[in-house]
Amino acid sequence: MKANYGYKDGSGDYFITIDTEKCNGCGKCVEVCPYGVMAVGEDENDPLSDREVAFVTEKERKKIKYTCAPCKPNKDTVPPCIKACQMEAIIHSW
């Protein structure tokens, strides 16, 4: 499943996409995220599965443009969560 967490507002699209088919639930993105945006747990959108996957925490979903900003000083910087993910399961839309 491609899980798009985030929002669209007047200034643009701000989504973190997690490919749960690729994600192995290792939790490295959680360790490197300085702001608690990432978490690992049961897949709330696939309630019959027992696998643990990464997701964006509920409290950050509506403000990632601001929370993630320090990790993205310019558009060429690769944020730590993406760098840490060996499965290449995380994509930022902006």
């Binding site: 491609k2 798009n4 929002y7 669209k8 989504f15 959108n45």
Partner: peptide
């Protein structure tokens, strides 16, 4: 009926 991709807009 299993989700393969989703997007939600509940900010506004």
């Amino acid at each position: 009926g299993k989700v393969t991709n989703f997007l939600m807009n509940d900010k506004c």
